[in-house]
Design a protein around this nucleic acid. Structure first.
Length: 737
DNA sequence: AATATTCCCGTTTTT
DNA sequence: CGGGAATATT
């Protein structure tokens, strides 16, 4: 929560009100001005990319605070923490509205649930379970229902439960909607999952939203309290709200109707996770008295970038027509580059950056965007080789590392002893001789008495049934009790103490000292805690855990880093760069399709639109003729989206460049047998270990050939042919089969 | 109980 | 291809 500091507000109030007003309205175009000066009643700001939305929103917040209300009555909700802190900074720099609440939906809900935990029947010290934790609990729930986790895969059930929660269906309500066998079974699992999560005082991301949405619906007292606290509500990126978020927004504004939604239907890219574009399309139906402002002048991009992006998005059929325009210069052509492979793609980008660097390109103003994270690999390799500094938007990945999760699991158990998932994780980490049979017995005994594992381990109860492990479990319990003594200390001290006395420091210090050695990451974690404390005075361990749980990938990108930024198209929403490279413009990738059913092509087009409009001056789109996906190199088809660009404003380059000379590829080639063309399904081969076998399938890629061989003993093996120790044998050499 | 090995799976985007 | 889980080994 943003601290309510001593306001510069008062000082500013000395200036006359009309002066402040004039200042806040200065330098704005007409629609922007209208949006800023609209105070009472619903307001919809339809803001195209680069149309100065953030500027309008921050000015308007300041305007509200200066004219009709106090900053603490203003609530602004964003999608990422990064957007929230940027907005907070920009508002505060206007010197008028310090003390506003600026938060993400999830962080806001978490905070409210701490306050209203009793109303939703939760302990105050609940902890937030990330997707991995949730996966584990879902799996346990499936097992507890006596179902096989192969027939009912956790990965398959999880999204169903998630969707139910987004639709605000508690287990019972969901069960009522279940009519067929499959959904009835899922309902049972959901119910079981819910029971287990409650027992562990755990909330998943969807719970945060669902509980607040339902609380606001069902508890009039709470709703009125919040309506009075938050008299002006602003929801950013409204086109990406899901049903739960929509409900929250509506309920918060029920009384006063001072709701301002900003967004752009053309940038709705989260349909797959339940976002409902009709929330923004129906805003005027929900609030018939709403004022609607359209921001269509673009201040960000060159004319050519804008017309290319506009031409693309114009191909969407389900769309409110909207025309973006700019007074900016046309700028250089948008470029499309055809490459041979992902390596060449990376090569071209590196070359291009190198060339432009000489004419003053700033690395921190350069981004490489892609549809799926796995595409970053070849770019990274290339940048490392070239010594080009880069950062990847992957904040979450850090917190997913084993050693980090281990440390956090200790803290989580201290904050919330009921958290069996975390306790199971740490009970034998570092190894202390408590194996899985012992853990199973502990679980059974905990279930027997309806207690948490923690209370069984620390309760001083009878552990003799565990045999020789009893002592070790007892010691572990004592250690937990001892660690709990640090709870009141500053977060980083507590953290250091826990790392040391849990034995994790010793465990990880002994490991190899590479660049990302576990111990370095742990140290980095401590630094992160120090930084968090410096920004949030008096923060508790619980606060910090909440913060880490709600971090997103984008939150890790720094603006002033002097590094190229690599990230997914999704993560790039809301950001801008001088130069943008988008890679992998190939059918199946952009637009993305998985399996056989078609994806949502219009949403894919919007995603591409978002990516293109991130660029201010330079936009380069690349595709490779061959690309390796999950181990197999395949011929690609270039994206149909490229055909939707205006031909005369795009520079097409199909020239083949020689891959740069110092990169000899012969090393990775392996030794290809001369007659490899003659190897085919049915060819007999010999392997020194498995003997004689027959090729069952062969897959010829661009520079790798994959074979699957079945041997006489019935075993089947797959190899990359170039690296496999296979010899071709003639039929007559084999003898009798 | 700890470690080494194989196998098998899924293949998007994220708060 | 790559990670995690099941399985084999010591």
């Amino acid at each position: 929560m943003a601290g309510v500091g001593k306001t510069r507000y008062n000082r500013r109030m000395n200036g006359s009100l009309s002066t402040i007003r004039d200042e806040l309205l200065s330098g704005l175009n007409e629609p922007q001005r209208q949006a800023v000066s609209h105070t009472e009643g619903p307001l919809l700001i339809l803001a195209g990319p680069g149309s100065g939305k953030t500027r309008v929103v921050t000015r308007r917040a300041a305007y509200l605070a200066a004219t009709v209300t106090k900053p603490w009555h203003i609530l602004a909700i964003t999608f990422t923490n990064k957007a929230a802190s940027e907005m907070r900074e920009r508002i505060e720099s206007l010197d008028v509205a310090e003390g506003m609440t600026v938060s993400t939906f999830h962080a806001l809900c978490a905070r409210l649930l701490r306050r209203y935990h009793e109303q939703v029947n939760l302990p105050r010290n609940f902890t937030i379970f990330d997707q991995a934790d949730r996966r584990k609990v879902v799996k346990k729930a499936i097992e507890a229902c006596d179902l096989s986790t192969t027939n009912w895969s956790p990965a398959g059930i999880e999204p169903v439960i998630s969707r139910a929660k987004n639709e605000l269906l508690r287990p019972r309500a969901f069960a009522e909607t279940a009519i067929d066998f499959h959904s009835k079974t899922v309902a049972r699992i959901y119910e079981q999952y819910d029971r287990m999560m409650r027992q562990m005082a755990g909330l998943d991301f969807d719970d945060l939203l669902m509980h607040i949405a339902l609380l606001l619906t069902e508890d009039t007292e709470v709703r009125e309290e919040l309506e009075d606290r938050f008299r002006y509500v602003l929801i950013d990126e409204y086109q990406d709200t899901n049903a739960a978020q929509y409900r929250i927004a509506r309920r918060l504004a029920d009384g006063h109707r001072n709701i301002c939604a900003t967004g752009d239907p053309d940038q709705s890219i989260y349909g797959w996770r339940g976002a409902d574009i009709s929330n923004i399309l129906n805003f005027e139906k929900d609030y018939p008295e709403a004022k609607v402002v359209r921001l269509e002048q673009n201040y960000r991009s060159t004319g050519r970038i804008l017309s290319a992006a506009g031409s693309l998005i114009g191909c969407n059929t389900e769309r409110k027509d909207k025309r973006l325009w700019t007074e900016n210069e046309p700028g250089p052509d948008v470029r499309v580059i055809e490459c041979e492979s992902s390596d060449e793609e990376a090569d071209r980008i590196a070359q291009d950056i190198g060339k432009q660097q000489r004419s003053g390109l700033k690395l921190s103003e350069t981004a490489v965007l892609y549809r799926v994270n796995s595409l970053s690999r070849s770019i990274e390799e290339r940048f490392i080789r070239e010594g080009l500094p880069y950062q990847i938007a992957r904040g979450v990945a850090f917190y997913n590392r084993k050693e980090i999760k281990d440390v956090l699991a200790y803290l989580r158990v201290l904050v919330n002893p009921a958290d069996d998932v975390s306790l199971t994780r740490i009970i034998n980490t570092p190894p202390r001789g408590i194996g899985q049979t012992t853990v199973q017995r502990l679980v059974a005994s905990a279930e027997g008495v309806g207690q948490s594992l923690h209370s069984v381990v620390t309760g001083g109860g009878d552990l003799t049934a565990l045999g020789r492990s009893a002592g070790k479990v007892g010691e572990f319990g004592k250690m937990l009790v001892q660690l709990a003594s640090v709870m009141e200390q500053p977060v980083h001290d507590a953290l250091e103490y826990v790392v040391k006395h849990s034995g994790l420091r010793a465990l990880y210090s002994s490991m190899d000292d590479g660049d990302d050695a576990p111990i370095n990451n742990i140290n980095e974690l401590v630094s992160a805690a120090v930084e968090f404390e410096s920004q949030n005075e008096g923060a508790t361990i619980g606060d910090w855990l909440e913060h880490t749980a709600l971090l997103g990938d984008v939150d890790s990108v720094r603006d002033d880093s002097g590094m190229i930024t690599l990230m997914t198209l999704h993560a790039a929403k809301g950001l801008e760069f001088d130069n943008v490279y988008i890679i992998g413009l190939e059918e199946g990738l952009i637009p993305f399709v998985r399996g056989h059913e078609d994806g949502d092509e219009e949403e894919e087009r919007r995603l591409m639109f978002v990516g293109m409009t991130r660029a201010r001056r330079g936009l380069v789109l690349l595709h490779a003729r061959y690309r390796m996906m999950r181990g197999i190199t395949e011929r690609t088809i270039r994206s149909s989206f490229l055909d939707e660009l205006p031909h005369d404003e795009v520079q097409w380059s199909a020239e083949r460049t020689v891959v740069s000379p110092r990169r000899s590829r012969s090393v990775d080639h392996g030794t290809l047998p001369d007659d490899v063309e003659q190897w085919e399904v049915g060819t007999l081969v010999e392997h020194e270990r498995y003997g004689i076998g027959r090729i069952m399938s062969i897959h010829r890629g661009h520079r790798r050939t994959h074979v699957e061989v079945m041997f006489r003993d019935g075993s089947r093996h797959r190899w990359v042919l170039e690296f496999a120790a296979l010899k071709r044998v003639a039929f007559e050499d084999v003898g009798d089969l």
